[in-house]
Design a protein around this nucleic acid. Structure first.
Lengths: 197, 197
DNA sequence: CGGGGTCTTGATCTCAATCAACCAATGTGG
DNA sequence: CCACATTGGTTGATTGAGATCAAGACCCCG
């Protein structure tokens, strides 16, 4: 395992691990645990014809990296889109209780639909839905939720748009007031309206 | 449960069920078993803002309808894109053995990436990838595989294109020889080259 | 300081969406 | 049996949204 993937000792406590935005959780080809996400959003990429290409989103509750337990190495590369907390998954009998497994499966099923919806429709709808997904992990009943914008490159690859289109769209959303910048003009922290479909 | 979803007595044998292309497996809101797909391709749709919208593909080995075991009703509607055989899933202890669960999870993980790839790139690549997925269930080591084309409407909704674009693209693929019609000019059976990315 | 990465903005062009017919096959009811 | 509606597929003309190409601003870091 490369040192890049070695978490600092502090970030790991009793099977838990905390990561900043933009960190890599694990890389395709390396080996390690499977994880359950406790908070935050993770982007999964698969090695395709043109390098790494977006292959899935994982939110709180989702399990990632299960391949490694089966094949001995990850087939996806995982990077965080926000601050993330994860815990080791799959080493306790508890994790395979039917109830729990069903939860995991259904969560994954809806995640597929969510991800697909990010690649359909007008750019503003796509980006809006993505930010809503990211905000969902933060929202606790409130309507207005603060979200840290991922890199435009990430947004572009996830929504199958170009960075230029993403940049223009976000600018427009800001000037329309649909995206409220908080904490300085050049801050990446914005408020979004969770109700906006 | 509506009679539409009642399988004929003949099609069900010791937990197995066979369906034609275009049949509905189950409808969102109704209740019933979870299923594992033994052969064929199933399309999943979720109730969205604009009616049913494409929300996932399931191939041989995949589990569908697990929500029903958890919530008491399906959240997705499932329709077959090809002839399909399914068996009841989730009622045996066996199904929750760690090895099996891991297989199910990893299969689902790659399915997400597959589905997402269907909505990126030029129309001919998208449609090609979809037909490859469908053919994968049929292919057994051979390169050239016969595939029954789904309805253009299905292809369009899955790839996030319009029917017109799909029609034009498929015509071009045929005239280019990338798609070889077999069994009559107006047949929906075609041969595809599984290697074509 | 220089250089690489990210974001922004502008000008141009392309290709898929859109709108509109039309055809063939199928089904329906009197 | 024919008139009619419906559904799935095809084709053409037009248009506009997003890709592409290009350049500059800004920032962080060695």
């Amino acid at each position: 395992m490369s040192d890049v993937d070695m978490p600092s000792a502090e970030s790991v406590r009793h099977g838990c691990r905390s990561l900043e935005r933009g960190e890599r959780v694990f890389a395709a080809g390396s080996s390690g645990h499977a994880w359950r996400i406790l908070a935050g959003v993770v982007r999964l990429d698969r090695d395709g014809a043109e390098g790494l290409e977006f292959g899935g989103l994982a939110l709180a509750g989702d399990v990632i990296g299960a391949e490694s337990l089966l094949f001995g190495s990850y087939t996806f590369t995982a990077r965080t889109l926000s601050a993330v907390t994860i815990e080791i998954w799959g080493e306790q009998r508890e994790h395979f209780r039917p109830q729990i497994v069903l939860h995991t499966l259904t969560a994954m099923e809806t995640r597929v639909a969510d991800a697909l919806a990010l690649r359909k429709g007008a750019p503003d709808r796509r980006i809006g839905r993505l930010l809503n997904l990211i905000g969902r992990g933060v929202a606790h009943g409130q309507r207005l939720v603060p979200v840290a914008l991922p890199q435009l490159r990430d947004i572009a690859e996830i929504t199958a748009l170009t960075v230029e289109t993403v940049s223009r769209t976000i600018s427009r959303l800001k000037s329309d007031g649909a995206l409220v910048v908080c904490g300085g003009e050049r801050s990446r922290q914005v408020w979004i309206d969770v109700d906006t479909r």
